[in-house]
Computed example of a mutant assay.
Amino acid sequence: MAVGRDRRWSLVRLWTSRPDLNATPGARRLTVDGRRWTRHEKGVADYSTEGRTPYAMSGRCDYVEYLHEGLFLSFERFGALSWEISTGSPVPADLVTAYREGDDAPPA
């Protein structure tokens, strides 16, 4: 799950890892999983990690995101590792309550 904020509203997406898909990002349009996807966003981000992770403590992540009728197809590559593919769908923000660490969150 990813929670973010756009200019006007909160964005919540439920992501599913898709190691079964064999695709490479780059083209403006892709046909993957029986759907025709259109590239929405691509870029590079710096990252840092904490705790157990298969990634380096810090580095760069390439990403490419595609859209198809409200669904998302995401490619991420951390450092020199292979592309990781995920599919995502929007979750109505009013169905999720998110707390920042230190806020008055109920005990887990």
Rank of each mutant, 00 (worst) to 15 (best):
W9T: 15
L81I: 05
D104G: 04
R5P: 06
G51W: 00
T38P: 07
V96C: 00
Y63P: 04
N22I: 15
S48C: 05
P107V: 07
K42C: 14
W83N: 09
G4C: 09
T24M: 13
S86G: 04
W15R: 14
N22F: 09
L71N: 11
G88V: 13
R52H: 01
D104N: 09
R18D: 00
V91G: 03
G88I: 11
F78G: 00
T53Q: 02
R28C: 06
G70A: 10
A2I: 12
S89I: 11
F75T: 08
E76N: 07
P92I: 06
V32R: 08
A98W: 04
E41Y: 04
Y63N: 13
R36W: 00
P106S: 06
L21Y: 07
E65P: 02
A93G: 04
H40Y: 15
A80Q: 12
W37D: 01
A2L: 12
N22S: 15
T24C: 10
G70H: 13
T97A: 05
R13V: 11
G34V: 08
T87E: 10
A80G: 07
E101K: 09
G4L: 10
Y99W: 12
R13I: 09
L73M: 08
G43M: 13
E69C: 14
V64K: 13
P92M: 07
S48R: 12
G4T: 10
R52A: 08
V12S: 01
E101F: 06
W15N: 09
L11W: 03
L73G: 03
T38N: 12
D94A: 07
G34L: 06
A23E: 09
Y63H: 11
L67T: 13
M1K: 08
R8K: 13
M57P: 01
E69V: 12
A56Q: 08
Y63M: 10
E50F: 02
R60P: 01
T97R: 07
P90L: 14
S86N: 05
L21K: 03
S58K: 11
G51D: 01
R52D: 05
R7V: 10
W83G: 04
E84W: 02
G51T: 01
